[in-house]
Structure formats: C-alpha cells, structure tokens
Design a protein around this nucleic acid. Structure first.
Length: 504
RNA sequence: GGUCCGUUCGUCUAGGGGUUAGGACACAAGAUUUUCAUUCUUGUAACAGGGGUUCGAUUCCCCUACGGACUACCA
C-alpha cells in the first residue's frame, strides 16, 4: 500500500510531558520528516477527570523548544480538525454502528457492582474479567430484551458501550519493531468503548481518529502493545482493515538504577530533569526541566534520539536535520533503555563546545548580571574561550571564571600551606616591581619579566607561578596565568599580588 | 496470578553461524602542563543459564531464569 505518511503524537493533557513522551514525539517527527510526511499533534483529552490546566500549552511549548513542532494539529490547524478529542464529537455514530453490526453492546453495570465482582473474585484467588465467559450473567443488552434496553436508555439510566470480543480467534499483528505478534481473543476482555459521560475511551477514539485523520503509521510507547489486538479488532469490526495504519511500539525508557519505568521521582532523587521544561503543578510543586537546567535543546534531541535508536555507525553527534535524513524504525531496538544522566551531560558538553565564545558570552551574561559583578563585555569571549572546554553547562562557567570578575577575598588554606612559604612573598614583591616597570602589559612582556626574575633569583617557574596563581584566584585553579593577567590588566594584577603579600 | 514484550561491558549500543565481539559514557592508569582542568595514549569490563540444530553458535529454535509492560467507564 502506497500512501502519504501521516503520523501523530497523541498525548493526554494530564500533566507535564514526560521525557519518554518527548522521545515518542521525536521519533514521530523524524519518521515524518524522513518520509516527507505530516506530523500531527492530537490532544487525547477524553478523560475530563484527569484534565490539568496548562498541560496542553506545556506540550506545545516543549515541542517548540526542541524544534520538533508538528506541521498539523492542535494549535497549528489542518483540514482534519478539531484536534482536541473532547471537541470532535464524532464517536457516537461509530459506537452505534458497532452495536448495529453486533460488535458491541450496551452495558448497565454500575462501577460499584463491577468492583464488587472484582473483590469477590480476588477472594477466591480469581480475576474477574468482563468477557465472553461472564457477559451473559451481567446487566447488558445481550441478556436484556430490546424493550428493557430501550426503556432503560429512555429513562436516562447510565450505560456504557462495550466491545463484544469474539470468543476464540487468533489475531495476527505486525509490529514494525517487533515483527509478528499473535494473540488469542479469548485472553481479551470486553473493553469499554464509550463511557457513560458521553465521551469515548481512548480505544475507540484513537482508532476512529486515526482513521478519519488518515494516519498511516502509529508510533507509540510499548505500554500500548497489550491493547493492539483490541485496536486491530476494532479496525476489522468497523470495516477499515484495508486502511489500518502500520504499528511500531517503541521500547520504554527505564530508570537509571534498578528497574522500572523512568518516573518523576527518579529525577528528584538523582537530581536530573525528567521533563523538558520546568513545570509547576496545580498544588505548587515544581519539577525541574531540561531548559531551566541549562541544556541545549539540540543536546536533548540528540540524547533522546540515541535512546532506543542507533545509526549503525560510530557517529554519536547528530543534528536534527541529519536525524531527519537517516532515521528509520527498523533501526529502533526492542529492549528498554536505562536513562543515563551522565551521558546527557556529555551530550550537552559536546554542543557547548560547538557554540562560539561570542554566543556563549551572550548566554552567560545574565548569570554575571545576577552575580552583580562588573565585567567588560568586550573581553568576555576571550575569557570564555579559555575555559569552555572545562564545562558541561553555561552556568558552570561561573566557577571557572569568577576570579576574572572579583578579586579573591580569602585564600584556600591548603594551597597557602603548600605554595606560600619561604621567600615566596619576597619573590612576589619583586615581581610587582618588575611589573610596575613594564610599559606594555601583554603575554610576552609578562613572560620576560617572569623569566628575568627567575634568573636573578635562581628560582623555579612552579614556585613562582603557583604563588601568583594563588594571588590571582585565591586557589589553585584557572587557565593560563599570563593571559589571565593580561585580561585583568596591569593595575588589577599588581593590586592582587600586593593584597596577597599583605594578607596571607 | 494471567497475557504480551524483552535480555551483548556498570550504562547506551554495533555486530552477526567461524570476529582479538567494535564504539561511546562512566571509571582507572600514564603522558603533557605553572595550578585545576582540557587534550592524548592505554587499561578494566559483556553475548543470563540449560538444551537442541550445525563441522561450528553470542548469532537460529526450544525451555528456564530474570526484567518490564498491560490487566479501569485512564491514557
């Protein structure tokens, strides 16, 4: 079958978008791009009880930040809208169609009566399942007469519509990632398709919408695999088997340690974000986001792309454009991947290194303003150039550069003990004299001054420079000293040397 | 419990009937260095177990173990 590639990302607006959901969106995006297809955003909000204000905006903004915005759907538009399921109102006729053709039936059982049955079954170490074995004993249109059913409905009694799962049929399914999967319908239950609140459940809604929106490929998380047989049966029951989309179920993203699905808790515990953007829940609780933690969106995309997919080569750094050209579902792995926070940092570092020092200066400026220090924007790129290979994040630049912006007020005691002894203070004083005599204060002249002093006093480079470093930074840290002093300037450098002699 | 999916270094993964099982992260060591880093080099480290099939299995098949997902009028 040769048809236009149309894929959808269909989250439900119940909270911030989880990193696993982001990856699902990314793979959909990449697959669409690769195949000149359309990437659609559909909001699956058929459960009003779980609706969370702001969640939809959060989803849209997250995708935007990552640069993987849909080309059709909620917030964008398109000819298959509305793209919010709660606004579509198209489902009931299909549910009715299934009833008319005998694939579905009305059920009047109350939630209470069903949970009672479940509890009772559990007491006997059994599981209650609403299926071909039990449906004849329950309160539904299969056992009630037509008049009784009509009367109940006319009286406004709440009901749901359930799928009448065949008793013994083998459903054969093809998953692009896992190959052929078989399942017998006798293991399945009579799922609710239409709820008593007048809205469809996910199962009906996603099949109907995928059909109406001409979705060609359903790419979603592995947690949906168990309901695939139901969906395939629904396509069959609705007579849409010939246009049924292809399915690909993505492996899960697991927590870094131990086992299980990655959750918000893991992030809190281990200090890494599980969400793309910071999120404040209605109760005020704040969850960290990749954006706020200083990650580049490109790094997040790159990192996520390699969680479950690989190019088959040794290349690890991919732009979104590259990924769009080479992505394929066939190269998605079958097994779940543990999330590795260290690797995420490493990816960010790679992108930080590719960022120009000028650009990094722009990004770093807000942090400097926050610290309320004076700085010369002109020299910022030069400073950053010296230290950019040392950090993973822009905000880490401060720890590597603070001494450019403020003179040390105290000195690392260990370094003092080790480097500030004997005739060191004298040497430093002499160096101050040498510096004062300099007309030009550049790397070369500093070098000559230092060399001259070392020769006169027959002292070693390490002895002198380590002490100078202590005077400049208050510690045994920092990039090349001569460059550092040039940027600080003659006056400030001499000032710091003097302060050290006087205060240590 | 039942059903389904999965299992290559600690982690992400490549590979695929005959390979010294490759790369990356992390870790360790050495080199460079005026410090801390960076960088470079090197190293430690894996085919879950048991049966088949085969001249040969990590690769194909089966079983077991382990892990995960699902099992709602949630998605």
């Amino acid at each position: 079958m040769n048809r236009d590639v149309r894929v959808r990302f269909a989250p439900s607006p119940t909270g911030p978008l989880h990193i696993g959901g982001v990856r699902t969106a990314l793979f959909n995006y990449l697959f669409a791009k690769k195949n000149n297809g359309t990437f659609i955003l559909r909001i699956e909000d058929t459960d009003q009880t779980r609706f969370v204000p702001g969640a939809e905006d959060y989803i849209v903004e997250s995708l935007k930040w990552l640069g993987i915005s849909p080309t059709e759907g909620q917030g964008i538009g398109g000819e298959y809208g509305p793209y919010r399921q709660s606004e579509r109102g198209v489902y009931k006729p299909y549910a009715n169609q299934l009833i008319d053709s005998g694939w579905a039936y009305y059920a009047f059982d109350t939630p209470e009566s069903l949970s009672e049955l479940r509890v009772k079954a559990e007491e006997n170490k059994e599981t209650f399942i609403y299926n071909f074995k039990t449906r004849q004993t329950l309160n539904n249109s299969l056992v009630l007469s037509k008049d009784e059913v009509d009367a109940k409905i006319a009286a406004g009694e709440p009901y749901v519509i359930r799928f009448k799962m065949p008793e013994d049929q083998v459903v054969e399914m093809l998953d692009i990632i896992r190959g052929e999967v078989k399942m017998n319908t006798k293991e399945l239950d009579d799922k609710v398709l239409f709820k008593s609140d007048g809205l469809p459940t996910y199962h009906l809604a996603n099949v109907v919408d995928d059909y109406l929106m001409k979705i060609s490929h359903v790419i979603r998380g592995e947690e949906w695999l168990p309901s695939l047989p139901l969906h395939v049966m629904l396509y069959k029951a609705l007579g849409w088997s010939d246009v049924q989309p292809a399915f690909a179920h993505l492996p899960l993203i697991l927590k870094p340690t131990g086992n299980g699905k990655l959750s918000k808790r893991d992030g809190d515990k281990m200090g890494f974000p599980v969400f793309p953007l910071e999120w404040q829940s209605p109760n005020g609780e704040i969850s960290k986001g990749y954006r706020e933690d200083g990650y580049f969106p490109k790094a997040v995309v790159n990192m996520l792309a390699l969680l479950g997919w690989s190019s088959g080569t040794d290349q690890e750094i991919f732009s979104l454009e590259e990924l769009s050209n080479i992505f394929s579902l066939e190269r998605v792995g079958k097994s779940g991947s543990k999330f590795d926070p260290d690797k995420a940092k490493w990816f960010n570092q790679q992108y930080l290194r590719e960022t120009s020092s000028e650009e990094l200066s722009q990004l770093f400026t807000p942090f400097l303003k926050d610290k309320k220090v004076d700085f010369n924007p002109e020299s910022l790129p030069e400073i950053i150039e010296m230290v950019k290979d040392r950090v993973h994040f822009v905000h880490e630049l401060w720890d590597q550069t603070f001494f450019f912006f403020e003179a040390p007020t105290n000195y690392n005691e260990k370094v003092v003990d080790k480097r500030w002894k004997g005739d060191v203070p004298e040497l430093i004083s002499l160096l101050v004299e040498k510096f004062e005599a300099l007309d030009k204060f550049d790397v070369e002249s500093i070098h000559h001054a230092v060399e001259a002093l070392l020769q006169e006093k027959e002292a070693g480079m390490g002895k002198l420079m380590n002490a100078v470093r202590l005077a400049m930074t208050g510690d045994a840290i920092g990039p090349d000293l001569k460059q550092m002093m040039v940027i600080l300037g003659k006056d400030e450098s001499i000032q710091r040397l003097r302060t050290a002699v006087n205060n240590i």
